[in-house]
Write a protein that binds this DNA or RNA. Sequence first.
DNA 1: AGGCGCTTGTGAAGACGTGCACAAATCGCG
DNA 2: CGCGATTTGTGCACGTCTTCACAAGCGCCT
Lengths: 256, 256
Amino acid sequence: MSQHRHPGVPGRAGAVPALPDLPEATVARLPEYLRALHNLADAGHETVSSEGLAGAAGVNSAKLRKDLSHLGSYGTRGVGYDVALLIDQIEFVLGLTQRRAVALVGVGNLGHALAGYAGFAGRGFRIAALFDADTSRVGEMINGLVVRHVDELPRVAAEEAISIGVIATPAPAAQAVAEQLVAVGVTSILNFAPCVLSVPDGVDVRKVDLAIELQILSFHEHRKASLTALPATGGSALTALPGGLTTPDTQEAIGT
Amino acid sequence: MSQHRHPGVPGRAGAVPALPDLPEATVARLPEYLRALHNLADAGHETVSSEGLAGAAGVNSAKLRKDLSHLGSYGTRGVGYDVALLIDQIEFVLGLTQRRAVALVGVGNLGHALAGYAGFAGRGFRIAALFDADTSRVGEMINGLVVRHVDELPRVAAEEAISIGVIATPAPAAQAVAEQLVAVGVTSILNFAPCVLSVPDGVDVRKVDLAIELQILSFHEHRKASLTALPATGGSALTALPGGLTTPDTQEAIGT
DNA sequence: AGGCGCTTGTGAAGACGTGCACAAATCGCG
DNA sequence: CGCGATTTGTGCACGTCTTCACAAGCGCCT
Ligand SMILES: NC(=O)c1ccc[n+]([C@@H]2O[C@H](COP(=O)([O-])OP(=O)(O)OC[C@H]3O[C@@H](n4cnc5c(N)ncnc54)[C@H](O)[C@@H]3O)[C@@H](O)[C@H]2O)c1
Ligand SMILES: NC(=O)c1ccc[n+]([C@@H]2O[C@H](COP(=O)([O-])OP(=O)(O)OC[C@H]3O[C@@H](n4cnc5c(N)ncnc54)[C@H](O)[C@@H]3O)[C@@H](O)[C@H]2O)c1
């Protein structure tokens, strides 16, 4: 965490472009830009200004320019950015030049939806294997893939070069599954189970918890309600007034 | 956006506890604490120290204490926090004292999984209505709820007091659905479609894009690979070495 | 060739979030 | 009743992120 960055590892005039270490906030936005760029490319645009791309990605244009400047500035002043070139750049930085293989563990309610989702292919990923512990599910075919028993993970991980593991099991099983994934060499995990995973250093975990998203929205609903209620009447009547916009203070577009 | 906050709207000694306006980062962590607290309560704990709760929620204990201090400090020095009391406090602040009604629009692949998920009830939410535009899906029963045509949204929104709208339609339909939701008074939206929504001020949107999560993980995979490859050999051979943990530099636990 | 309008890239300032370290408060026990 | 062990709440310093504002660069038009 509090590691100093080496004072003398700048350009490194070697052959490889030498990944600049981007701010984490920038990394989280690059995929957004990439999606917007693909839309623009499909619409026939060859170049785009920072203002235009920022609008399409839903961010401030200064922020976008600073983000892009971190990865080497492929824009032209007075003109904008070359869409195709920028797509290549971002895809390279994100490591999407070859399609990454994803292993999905837990083919239940949610796992089925993920396994059947066609949209991942266009974003750089290939669901390479499905696993479950329930023997009655093993053997089922989903979208051309067979569900295998989780015990086969080591063998399959060796065959396919698994890059990312996705956990969609119930929470009590998630920690054990994470350990199995780490044991076969997986160093990136996307966790849908509502629990914290502990993993060794060097393993990245990202978590998606839909209930948490709803609860954050609930907080803002609660706050909006208490703001409109109090200044108007004495504070007791809680009749929702779904017409007038609330205070122009307290803007939206909350933490992304 | 760049709204100043009024310099003189502090305690407001009114009857209502007067929601403190929490830092957004704190709001995003409260649900995590809440989940951990429920686990502790189920395990029979009556009190918990900041250290213990922080461990269960996967955060720094100082951060946890500061977060909790923002909502009024219900801890006892030398002892810790009363689990049941803290649960009540957080649920109140998050607006979960009464179960919030959620409307789900788009009952396809993903929408089915969400509609069938039993876990929302325990986290303060009730899926109150399902909508789809495909007439061949309308009428289908999922988990005791009937799928209605999206045209019925105004009528149903009036009956059930819809608090949050969830969009699980394809991206091209999402903006139109968002506008329909806003039109019936919904001011909080959770969007699963990979696109930006533009909504009026006063409406909160949160977005869940699974492909983005994978792409962020992909970036870190890419970086880890280029870090292990370069210092070892000259820099050309890119054979993945899935054994030794990478550099103890560049710690994990990336942006939550 | 020169000037003009447009757009990028970035310095600087401010807002925000984090984590250490410690004083203040509380409990239990002798 | 007092003392020590324990744990909260927070002041402070530091790092990260955001946003403004503008100089530098580019292309086009005359
Ligand atoms: N379905 C949703 O919409 C939704 C929403 C939010 C969160 N989640 C979370 O996602 C996870 C999955 O939800 P779900 O609705 O698909 O649950 P589910 O019960 O339908 O599916 C879980 C699957 O995991 C399998 N499994 C259990 N233990 C396993 C193990 N050790 N190894 C491999 N597979 C194992 C089960 O056999 C089952 O097929 C849960 O943690 C849930 O809380 C789901
Ligand atoms: N399935 C996944 O795992 C997954 C993963 C990531 C993202 N997503 C995104 O989630 C969204 C839904 O994915 P899906 O796989 O369920 O797609 P899907 O095509 O299976 O389902 C979409 C549903 O929305 C309905 N619909 C279309 N237009 C509508 C409208 N105007 N009003 C109401 N309903 C409408 C369709 O009839 C269909 O039932 C997509 O935007 C997708 O990109 C899904």
